[in-house]
Write a protein that binds this DNA or RNA. Structure first.
Lengths: 194, 194
DNA sequence: TTCGTTTCAGAACGTATATTCTGAAAACAA
DNA sequence: TTGTTTTCAGAATATACGTTCTGAAACGAA
């Protein structure tokens, strides 16, 4: 009976993610999304309720994209990632920050701009970092067994590696050169080894 | 001849810093500043030109406050700070994040929300982190001499310690518990030692 | 006191924003 | 075809924003 929708919600989310990531939550208006996607205002509000919900949806989509990135880093070519896999993973992130069109991490940006203002954002951000921790944990347990890293409590190692990632993300927003970033990661990983 | 000004610019900056820090650049309006300070709009624009300039002034003021914090951390009670001083310094930061009324670092927030949008902000942020690096460098040179830390190039150590700080700031915005933060700092500092 | 200058308090202006409303068009069932 | 339902495109609304303007008030010099 009804008229069929002329846009695909996922493509709207990709466009909105691009805009929110580039400009931030406040500085990106619904008019910006309309202009970029060509989708009518009515369609956006019908599909996503309001701006806050649209933002949360883009954040969830980002989380899924990063999850895919993690799987592709840690589960190929074999299913036994170890410390070398971690080094390669950070190199992938360094390459992405160097050549990709986005600086920094959308979830971290969301945490800073919307922390404590939208509980739903808080929850997604927490889950986002939990995803990453889980991948690191599995890898680090194996690295300890193989004596590739110092023999410390696994949770300490997880927190330490999360710290490397957090620092790297921060650096890429604070005018640190690519060389500085690579040196930092190399040094921080070296200090983990026995 | 003229009528005398009824407010003190520095107290306006303190109030504006509080608001910008809490809400962010976009989400804090000039009306908010007027309401909080009681100063007339005209007075604000006369003293600070416009919102961007007011923001830059608060950022410079924040930089100075942090400089004072660094001096009080590193130049007391003696003038020979070493690795133990660094550990105490991070404990001060941890305490401040735990009991203080602000979460995170205003300069880092500025970098994320306004990076690439206002060159003046970029410059102040760069200088801000350079200040901190300089303090860490002097301390780390001495720590290496005293063999309190592993014998690595000083610039690597500086980058590493800056990384600890960056990670700590990020954690305090990402729902990490106080215990997690303290564990992380302890672990990261331990790995520096021989 | 009077005059000139500056601040004050708030109105005013123009623009931008999030959201809703409106009539026409499209799709499909009957 | 007709009728019903939904989307479309854009106008409309109400608010918020950054900034400027206006007249009254305060201050100090003459």
């Amino acid at each position: 009976m009804p008229r069929t929708r002329e846009f695909h919600p996922d493509s709207v989310l990709d466009a909105a993610l691009d805009l929110f990531w580039r400009k931030g939550y406040k500085a990106c208006s619904m008019a910006d999304v309309v202009k970029k996607t060509g989708v009518a205002r009515y369609g956006l509000y019908q599909a996503f309720k309001d701006k806050d919900q649209l933002y949360c949806c883009t954040l969830r989509r980002y989380r899924q994209k990063v999850r895919d990135f993690l799987y592709s880093s840690f589960l190929q070519p074999n299913d036994q990632p170890d410390f070398h896999t971690l080094a390669e993973h950070f190199n992938r992130i360094l390459d992405e920050l160097e050549t990709g069109e986005y600086q920094g991490c959308f979830a971290h940006q969301a945490a800073i701009e919307r922390a404590g203002k939208d509980p739903e954002v808080d929850a997604i951000v927490s889950g986002f970092f939990k995803d990453i921790e889980d991948h690191y944990r599995a890898l680090l347990i194996r690295s300890v067994e193989l004596k590739q890293v110092r023999d410390l409590p696994v949770e300490d190692l997880v927190a330490y590696v999360m710290g490397i990632q957090r620092a790297l993300i921060a650096m890429s927003k604070q005018n640190c050169s690519i060389q500085e970033r690579r040196n930092y990661v190399r040094c921080a990983l070296e200090l983990m080894q026995p």
